[in-house]
Amino acid sequence: MNQLLDQKTTEKSAPFTAKQGQYLAFIWAYSQINGRAPAESDFQRYFKVTAPSVHQMLKTLDHMGLIQKQPGVARSIQLLITPQQLPILGVEQPVIISETGH
């Protein structure tokens, strides 16, 4: 019984990983800007990952009930969570540390 309660508490506090959150945030941002859902190739370009990686992530998000896709229909991704539940879409930037002369 306690395991079930602990599992539900964990799910509510962290419904998705940071990486999954970035994919969800990308879907929302892309859809807002372009008026349609992103294609898998759009994910590849943005996240600099392979096609199988994108496909697996979208299958995972669909299985988790965070998105919905229509099989065989291009750009059919729909978010099943509200924008308020999404993290801010981040852009990974390298950190440059400048050394000061002695």
Rank of each mutant, 00 (worst) to 15 (best):
S76H: 01
K8A: 13
Q3K: 07
D42L: 04
I67A: 03
N34G: 08
K69M: 14
A37M: 04
I88Q: 11
L79I: 03
M64G: 02
T82E: 08
F16E: 14
R75E: 15
G101V: 15
H102Y: 04
T100L: 07
V73Y: 03
E11H: 13
M1D: 12
V49D: 02
G21D: 10
S13N: 13
R36V: 13
T100F: 04
S98K: 14
I67D: 07
I88K: 08
Q78P: 00
Q68N: 05
T100I: 05
K12F: 10
R45T: 06
Q22S: 12
I97R: 08
L66N: 06
V91G: 04
K59G: 07
M57P: 06
Q32L: 04
Q7C: 13
L4W: 01
T17V: 07
A37L: 08
G90P: 01
H102S: 05
P87K: 02
E40M: 11
G65V: 12
I96Q: 07
Q7G: 07
A25G: 11
I96T: 05
K48E: 07
D6N: 05
H55L: 14
I33R: 09
Q70P: 00
L79A: 02
R45G: 04
E99R: 14
I27L: 09
I97T: 13
P38Q: 03
V95Q: 06
S31C: 05
I88T: 15
I27M: 03
L4T: 04
Q93S: 01
F47P: 07
I81W: 00
K69I: 13
Q20Y: 02
R36H: 15
Q68R: 03
W28R: 13
G72C: 07
H102M: 07
G65E: 11
K8M: 06
A74T: 13
S41Y: 09
P94I: 05
K12M: 13
Q7H: 12
A29E: 12
S31Y: 00
F47A: 02
Q68F: 00
T100S: 03
A25S: 13
L5W: 00
Q56T: 14
K19W: 02
Q44F: 00
L5Y: 02
I77N: 03
P71C: 06
V49S: 00
P52I: 14
L86C: 10
E40Q: 12
Q78N: 06
E92P: 06
S53G: 07
L24Y: 03
L24A: 04
I96K: 10
E11V: 11
D6M: 02
P94F: 00
K8I: 09
Q56A: 14
P38G: 06
I88P: 09
D62A: 09
S41T: 14
T60L: 12
P87L: 03
